[in-house]
Computed example of a mutant assay.
Amino acid sequence: MTASPSPAAGPIRTGRQPLSLALTAGLLAALALASVAIGTRAVGWSDIWAALGGRVDSIATAAVATRLPRTALAMLAGAALGLSGAVMQGVTRNPLADPGILGVNMGASLAVVVGIVWFGITALQDYVWTAILGAGLAAVFVYAIGSLGRGGATPLKLALAGAATSVAFSSLVIAVVLPRADLAGSIRSWQIGGVGGATFAGIGHVAPFLAVGFALAMISARRLNALALGDELAAGFGERVARARATAAAGAVLLAGATTAICGPIGFVGLVVPHVCRLLAGTDHRWLLPFSALAGACLLLGADIAGRILARPAELDVGIVTALMGGPVFIWIVRRQRIREL
C-alpha cells in the first residue's frame, strides 16, 4: 500500500498546480528563445528560423547554430540539478540538501580530476562513468558520516558532513592538479561550471544517463511522499523504506554525476529550486518533481543569459551566476527553516 502525502507537510494545491506548471513551461520556452537570440552578436528571427532549418551560410546563422546546443544543455543540466535537489531533500528530509552542499558534485569533480591527471582519461563517456562513480561514493560517505552518533542521520549532521566533505574534496582537487601545470588551466575552467562550448554530440553521450536518472526520480515520487511521513509510518503503510530511499538516491546521483561530467560542478540550483516550487506545487512529490525539473531548467537558462548580458562582450560562466544568486537564498533558507526536517 502506498502512503498518501503527509497531511502535516502542507496543503496540496491541486487547483493551482496545472496552471502553474503550464506557466513554468511557457517561461522555459520564452527563455529558450531568448538564449538563442541573445549573445555577443545580435540575430534576427529570420536568422533563427534559417539556423533551425539547418542553414549556416552567414555569421548570424552560424552564431545561432552554436547557441542551440548550449541552450539545450542549459535546460537539461538545470532540470537534472533541480530534480536531483528535490529528490535529495525528500530522501534525507533535509531542507538544506542538494548535490553541492551534500558533497555529491565535488565527489564527482574529484573523481573526474583524478581520472584525467592520474589515468589519462579523455573521452566524455569516461568522464560520465567516472563522475557518477565519484558522486555515488561521495553520497554514501556523507550519509555514513552523518549517520554516526545518537539520532542517526539528522538534517544538521548531514549538512555539516556534506559541507566538510565538499571542502576536503575541493582541497584534494587542488592537490591533484598542482603538479600538472599543463592541465591546470582547463581543469580550473571546467570546475567553475558552465555550458559554453556545448555540442549535440556531447549531449548525446550524457543523455542516456540523464534519462535513467529522470526515470528513477519520477517513479520515486509516491515513495518520497511515504518517506515524508517518517520511516516507521512509511513501513507501516507497506513501503520498503531502504529500497525506496536507495532507488530515489540512485536517480539523484545519476543526474548530479552526469551533469557534473559535462558542465562541471554547478551549485545552488538543487537547493533553491525545490523551495520555490513548494510554494507553487505544495509538498506532493508527484507535482513537486516535475515542477523542480522545469524550474531548474528555467533557472540555469536564465543564469546563462544573465551571464552573457552582465559581462558583455565577454561572459560570466553560469556557475558563477548561480553562486551569486544562491548564496543569499541559502542564508534565507537556514534562517527560515532553522535546520528543521521537512
Rank of each mutant, 00 (worst) to 15 (best):
D47W: 01
L160D: 02
P18T: 11
I187Y: 02
T130E: 04
E315H: 06
T40I: 01
S46I: 02
G213P: 12
W129K: 01
S4T: 14
N94W: 07
G103Y: 00
R41D: 02
T199A: 10
L229H: 12
I305A: 09
A249N: 02
D304I: 12
A297M: 12
A314T: 09
G196Y: 13
L299R: 00
P274V: 00
G115R: 02
Y143F: 14
L216C: 11
L233Q: 14
C277F: 02
L210C: 10
G115C: 08
I59H: 03
N105K: 06
G327I: 13
L33C: 10
G230A: 11
C298P: 08
I121Q: 09
G264A: 06
M325A: 15
V321Q: 06
G327M: 12
R188C: 01
S109D: 11
L210D: 06
A25H: 02
W49S: 13
S35E: 12
A138T: 04
I145D: 03
A30L: 15
A42Q: 13
L148E: 03
G103L: 05
A293W: 00
T2V: 13
G44Q: 06
A9I: 04
E232I: 03
A314Q: 13
A163L: 14
V91G: 08
M218T: 14
G264H: 05
H285R: 09
A30W: 03
F169T: 07
T165Q: 07
A161H: 06
S109P: 07
I339D: 14
I339P: 00
A201S: 14
G236N: 10
G327T: 15
I174R: 11
R16G: 15
A3C: 14
G204E: 05
A34M: 14
D231A: 13
P328N: 06
A34H: 03
L27N: 05
I266P: 11
R180N: 14
R240N: 15
A32H: 01
S147W: 01
R312H: 13
L279Y: 05
P7A: 14
R93L: 13
T283H: 15
L27E: 05
A198N: 09
A34L: 15
S46Y: 00
W118V: 05
I262P: 04
V241C: 09
A246G: 02
V321F: 02
F200H: 07
G103C: 10
A221V: 10
G26K: 07
A42F: 04
A235F: 09
L83T: 14
T71H: 05
L76P: 04
T24F: 13
G196L: 05
A8I: 12
L178A: 11
S292E: 08
R312G: 01
G15C: 03
G134N: 06
W45F: 13
V36Y: 05
A51D: 05
G236C: 08
S220Y: 09
A323C: 11
G39K: 03
L294N: 04
V272K: 00
S109L: 05
W190N: 09
R336N: 09
R340V: 11
T322G: 09
W287N: 13
